[in-house]
Nucleic acid binder design. Structure first.
Length: 493
RNA sequence: GACCCUGUGGUGCAGAGGCCCAGCACGUCACCCUUUCAAGGUGAAGAUCGAGGGUUCGAAUCCCUCCAGGGUCGCCA
């Protein structure tokens, strides 16, 4: 009885993208739900394309997502000697053969196969070589790759995928794939099996792009005499144009760290990712992380590819609206005490942080009230430093459209605003309950609709045309700042 | 080309033969509330369930064909 072990095995040929993030998430959820071990393995066998920067950014992405691994990161490149050893064993046992065909010869073979309308399957001349002849040529220093000798027996491979169901493939449809290059460096299909065996992986959860590769890997398991793990393949995530997501084509939306940098909550992003290709079978959409772990099942994974919607031209749709919406939900449902530490780094980054806001600090309660009031209309954490800037600093910008709409149309505001400030100055207490009658009385006396003053005041005090209820916001910002801003706005008219 | 997978409103998902003249959410639109709104409330539009054939008393759900999209076929991962 071995315990459940799953792994996420990205190759560091790029940063962590959303598809990878989701694969990692599903592995993590599965492990968490069943008390298994979640392993991280970096597949860096392709030295040409792998680099440390990418590895770092993948780890960063996973950390931000909160997908903590129990073991690793292991680096595939560290096991090369073992991979080579296994390949030599396979060769010795007759499960593989030396493929002496040069690149040119292979290309020729493939062209001939194509011309004959047959798929290329084997390096037939090499495969037909006697062991003695093969040994002799190898000893003579002739370069060769090692290829798996797919049985010629009319049989096939079969496995039951947890998502896609029973999968069968005839040996006659599987080509003799290479295990080792002529320089003895190992290739993907071989390495994955070696490492999954070495790490005693019991369940492989990965992208659907590996579905057909699985048959090759099964062949290796069989040759090795090792019981293969179970498999679950995940549908792919595509771009709105239905093509594969790529940074070149689709830009930053595909990178997990973009979501971090744009003020996403990791739990919200996990929630979004989980819903891309999975559902509990009901209509529930907003999940806390605990609920997600509870509800997650492989059976709920769908087989069709999902599309992540976004638009390069519309900044409000820089990523999927659903993701944004989910973030807003999480932002608004989260206890304020939990939200506060998440907003802190954002404010720090914008130079808006005050240590008095911290838990136990003099202004902590005020800070929580501010977050509570502001978040109803905010979507991401970044909003606190953007449209929310005026609540934390005096050097905020006034939105041009807001100024035109609320301050620019009524010239008499030049007098009305300072007069309002005078009234506020004299108010016995600066609370929303006390402020509202004051403003309304003021507008009555002036014979204008309260809305004119209310909207002008909102823009003067916060720089925005939208925001929380004015009187609550005034109370929050405080008498001194409010009055100063009302007068300053009037001076600029 | 070969092999494999998929196909429910714009998007993400429900739906596992009758409860579906198809549900939820996002988005869109309208209205209400109101001091604003990218907030809240209410409501509307939007799907001949890829197409065509079957099976069945009855199909989005089962079968066949076709079409479309995706994946794999590398001495990439």
């Amino acid at each position: 009885m071995t315990s459940l072990r799953v792994r996420f095995a990205p190759s560091p040929t790029g940063y962590l993208h959303v598809g990878g993030g989701r694969t990692a998430l599903f592995n993590w959820l599965y492990a968490r739900k069943h008390g298994g071990t979640f392993i991280l393995r970096i597949e860096d066998t392709d030295k040409e394309r792998s680099n440390d920067t990418n590895t770092k950014s993948i780890l960063e992405g996973l950390e931000w997502l909160g997908l903590h691994w129990d073991e690793g990161p292991y680096f595939q490149s560290e096991g090369i000697a073992r991979h080579q050893q296994v390949a030599r064993e396979l060769l010795a046992k007759g499960w593989a053969y030396r493929s002496f065909a040069t690149s040119e010869e292979l290309e020729k073979q493939r062209k001939e196969a194509e011309a004959a309308k047959r798929p290329w399957l084997r390096d037939a001349p090499s495969r037909a070589l006697s062991i003695e002849e093969s040994d002799r040529r190898a000893a003579a220093g002739e370069p060769f790759a090692i290829r798996f000798k797919v049985p010629d027996d009319g049989g096939g491979t079969r496995f039951e995928d947890a998502v896609y169901g029973v999968q069968e493939r005839k040996h006659a449809d599987i080509e003799d794939f290479a295990l080792l290059r002529p320089d003895a460096t190992p290739l993907y299909n071989h390495v994955v099996v070696c490492d999954d065996v070495e790490m005693r992986i019991t369940f492989v959860i990965r992208g659907q792009d590996h579905l057909s590769n699985t048959h090759k890997q099964l062949l290796i398991y069989r040759a090795l005499g090792v019981e293969p793990p179970r498999f679950a393949h995940l549908p792919l995530i595509n771009a709105p144009d239905r093509t594969k997501l790529s940074k070149r084509k689709h830009g930053e939306v595909v990178s997990v760290t973009t979501y971090r940098d744009r003020g996403f909550l990791p739990e919200a992003f996990r929630n979004f990712l989980a819903l891309l290709g999975w559902s509990a079978g009901d209509d529930k959409e907003v999940y806390t992380s605990e609920e997600l772990v509870q509800a997650f099942t492989l059976e709920g994974i769908s087989r069709s590819n999902a599309i992540i919607n976004f638009s390069e031209s519309d900044p409000r749709m820089w990523t999927d609206k659903k993701a944004l919406h989910l973030n807003q939900e999480h932002l608004n449902r989260m206890p304020l005490e939990e939200l506060a530490p998440k907003v802190e780094p954002v404010l720090r980054g914008a130079g808006l942080w005050d240590d008095a806001y911290a838990a136990g600090g003099a202004r902590h309660d005020w800070f929580l009230r501010a977050l509570g009031l502001l978040r109803a209309r905010f979507v991401t954490l970044s909003d606190f430093a953007g449209p929310g800037r005026a609540y934390f600093a005096d050097d905020f910008e006034t939105d041009a459209a807001a100024r035109d709409k609320n301050l620019g149309k009524e010239p008499r505001l030049k007098e009305w605003l300072p007069a309002l400030a005078d009234r506020f100055e004299a108010a016995p207490e600066f609370t929303h309950a006390a402020l509202e009658p004051l403003l309304r009385a003021h507008s009555d006396e002036l014979g204008v609709k309260a809305g004119v003053l209310i909207n002008a005041a909102r823009t003067a005090v916060t720089g925005q045309s939208v925001g929380p209820s004015l009187f609550e916001l005034l109370e929050l910002v405080g008498r001194e700042r409010v009055c100063a801003r009302l007068r300053a706005a009037a001076r600029l008219l």
